[in-house]
Design a protein around this nucleic acid. Structure first.
Lengths: 404, 404
DNA sequence: CGCAGTTTGTTCAGTTGCGGCACAAAGCGA
DNA sequence: TCGCTTTGTGCCGCAACTGAACAAACTGCG
């Protein structure tokens, strides 16, 4: 903070400084050829060539020098760049209300293998994480691929820097469970190489969508999504996740969207959480909610198959209006250039996109900031891919150091 | 965005890459000696010495090699670093409800000279900006100092990238006035060297406080302040102003803080804007509001001198509760690690700091994020200093290129 | 007062990432 | 087949930085 600090700072790394940015460009699909890589990096062709060769030597990318592989305009065709199929992978894990999922994810967000599963006693985080890591370790053994690290997505805010799950509502976990510590320990115990990371599932979904999905190219990406219960938010600024000073940013579930609404456990009334989640929708549509772990599917199916029913339609419009109010509030604070919706919010958007956009535009303060594009999530398993992004990040930052 | 872009990107500048960071460290007071500079930059003593010598040769900083200038611990005393007294300056300008102010600001946020003034016809932005630039040009001529550029602070959201003032409420300006264009033209016409910039006053105040005031060292700094009317907000992330994708982020005036509150021109009820500004305070305290341009002073004086009056105290507590609710909402979305208040909000904080902190902590979702430190602004003329920061930024980014 | 110990500034090779240039390679159009 | 255009590659040189050795300035101790 103040005055003399003896911390030895980020020593300006020697070694190709353009290596990380180059890998990130290939990883996110923004550098399909070496020529594009040259202009995007702002270096000479000589340097870009050397960088690409080095990434290929590291086994991360593939340079396709076969002639005729690139069509197009005049001039000599550029060699194509792509992530290597049998390159290293990250171990991604996700825990949700009704089980877990493990996967191996390569560069470019490519899912190489997945393994879903359930556990008997969901109330014990150590057991759940033990099983998901074991499933992941088995995938790794079967694949024989190198592992750069592991990432875990949990449906809860994750406090920084401790890595504790503050509100694992959908899980039967105790609040404050040290998920990062448990996950790291299990990963190490399973002999999986590389560091281990943990994050909130909506945050990680936003990160994945930004790099590989509907959020590509956005500078200020806002993501809002429901699970079976409750609402989560995330913000990606200039390609990096913004999770606040202690990981609690964008906990948007308790924005007030209906001053006369139903009371919320937070002490307020009409919070986004209780006004726009699947349970709220089913209640508004006068349907009997099924078991907790199927609320999301039940709501989505209802929206898609029975939108003609006046009761369903009225419920949808009520939720769209509430959601729009919440989004408008966020737009006035964050001024994003793109919004991505997931879960039931995605279904609501697709049921009546014009209505939602109109509400947001109407309640935003100044025209253009309210006409921000609102899109649906576009990736399968985006939280899982996002968890893998966490593990890939050190490699993207400095491939040489991370793979040494 | 997608695919091949022909834009020639940020060419990795040659020339000492550590020059900019080093200047920024001296500028923000984080490198009082060459030894600290060495560790903060993470370079060898040889490099730090060369960098400091080059900055001195550019006339930006002063290296005090006189013996005995540094007390302290063991070993050879380090040479002290300081910004040069008669170095270049930035021209800073501010327009507010009752006039304008021009100043010359050196590195380190040091105000070298100021000139306040008024204009007859405030309704014409071209005339106001013409006069403020003329006042600044006169200061420059009198000083004989080199000018690196000019910055302007206006009490309105400034849309990016056009640079138009969207809601100059306190001024009699037309909404959408092209302030950046006008200011740039006037600066060029006056023969003032360097680029010209324009920004919102609260944003610029936050930037100044982050670099030279109560916000030093904060990673996620939230700033909220009132002028005579209305409320503004700003966010500084990792040392850079976050103003959203079109400059409209943190327009927090229309957060709902009182569902049963008075109607607001935005269409809602009980907005922060109409519930916590000086006019709201005077009304709540049953005092006759004076002329528009003295509302802030009138409110502050009332708070400081008559806090014993039950009527004043009740009004203050009501506003503190409303402000706390608004801040808690922002804390839940942004999770800052420090909050700075200006204008009447600062006076409210100082009247009863415990009450405000308690409200924020109570309405924040998870303990620690709500116990964020809340401080008063600590700089005089922080918007003015912030405007100068805009003009200094190119020099801080690349001193050699900017001063060439 | 002198000497060890500590921290800082300076000088001088040596390394290296990268720009700049020239040339070769690979496609298109006439 | 001959330009024309665009891309890949080898070579040279610059300059920023590291590392190490040495000099300088101060404290503390005997």
């Amino acid at each position: 903070m103040n005055g003399k600090s003896t911390t030895t700072r980020t020593k300006l790394e020697r070694g190709r400084s353009a290596l990380g940015p180059a890998l990130e460009l290939v990883h996110t699909g923004r550098a399909p050829t070496r020529a594009v890589l040259t202009s995007e990096l702002g270096v000479t062709r000589a340097t870009a060539g050397a960088v690409a060769a080095e990434l290929e030597a590291l086994g991360l990318i593939r340079v396709d020098s076969s002639p005729g592989s690139a069509a197009g305009s005049q001039g000599r065709p550029s060699h194509r760049l792509a992530v290597r199929d049998s390159g290293p992978v990250a171990l991604a894990a996700q825990v949700h209300a009704d089980g877990f999922r493990a996967a191996l994810v390569g560069l470019g967000g490519r899912i190489v293998a997945t393994a879903p599963g359930c556990v008997a006693v969901m109330a014990d985080p150590a057991q759940v994480l033990g099983e998901v890591v074991e499933a992941g370790a088995e995938l790794l053994r079967d694949s024989g691929l190198r592992c750069v690290g592991a990432g875990l997505a949990v449906p809860s805010a994750v406090a920084e820097p401790e890595g504790t799950a503050l509100n694992p509502m959908h899980l039967a976990w105790p609040a404050g469970a040290p998920v990062r510590e448990i996950f790291s320990a299990r990963v190490r115990a399973a002999g999986i190489s590389g560091p281990a990371f943990t994050g909130n599932d909506v945050n990680l979904a936003a990160l994945a969508e930004h790099r590989h999905g509907a959020g590509r190219g956005a500078q200020h990406l806002l993501c809002v999504a429901t699970g079976h219960r409750g609402v989560g938010g995330a913000l990606v600024l200039d390609g990096r996740l913004h999770s606040g000073s202690s990981g609690l940013a964008l906990e948007v579930g308790h924005l007030t969207v209906n001053p006369e609404g139903r009371p919320c456990h937070c002490g307020g009334r009409g919070c986004l959480d209780v006004e726009t989640d699947p349970l709220a929708f089913l209640t508004a549509a006068h349907r009997e909610p099924g078991p907790e772990e199927s609320l999301l599917k039940q709501s989505g199916d209802l929206l898609r198959t029975e939108y003609g029913d006046p009761c369903v339609r009225a419920a949808a419009e009520e939720l769209i209006d509430r959601l729009g109010l919440g989004l408008a509030g966020l737009v006035n604070i964050l001024n994003p250039d793109r919004i991505i919706l997931g879960g039931l919010h995605r279904d609501l958007l697709e049921a009546d996109p014009e209505r939602l956009r109109a509400v947001v535009a109407d309640r935003s303060l100044w025209g253009r900031s309210g006409s921000v594009p609102i899109l649906s999530c576009s990736l399968d398993h985006n939280s899982l891919v996002g968890a893998a992004e966490l593990a890939w990040q050190p490699v993207l930052d400095d491939p040489l150091a991370a793979l040494a």
